[in-house]
């Protein structure tokens, strides 16, 4: 799973947002806000990662149980998929 071209994550005054540029603007004209964990997962997905790899990375980086990590990643990936941001 990988973030589609044209969706860029930026930090603006301490806030994480995703906006579309180039041809992606035709499909998505909004602004997405992410928290720190969201931006952490997003950066992994920019390079391409499976849900399993995301979970391993999250467990390494954050003090969180496997159960919660699995749930949160599932929700995050579903949101990205529904919004058409990943391929």
């Amino acid at each position: 799973m990988k973030i589609k071209d044209g969706f860029i994550l930026r930090e603006v005054a301490g806030n994480y947002i995703v906006v579309a540029v180039g041809n992606a603007v035709k499909d998505f004209n909004g602004v997405i806000t992410l928290n720190e964990t969201g931006s952490f997962l997003w950066k992994k997905l920019e390079k391409g990662a499976t849900e399993e790899e995301l979970k391993t990375a999250l467990l390494e980086e954050y003090d969180v149980t496997e159960e919660i990590a699995t749930r949160d990643i599932g929700l995050f990936v579903k949101k990205l998929t529904d919004a058409g941001l990943v391929k």
Binding site: I8, V19, V21, G22, V25, N29
Partner: peptide, 8 residues
Amino acid sequence: RPQDQEDM
């Protein structure tokens, strides 16, 4: 909002 990444 501009389309061009540099402008964005």
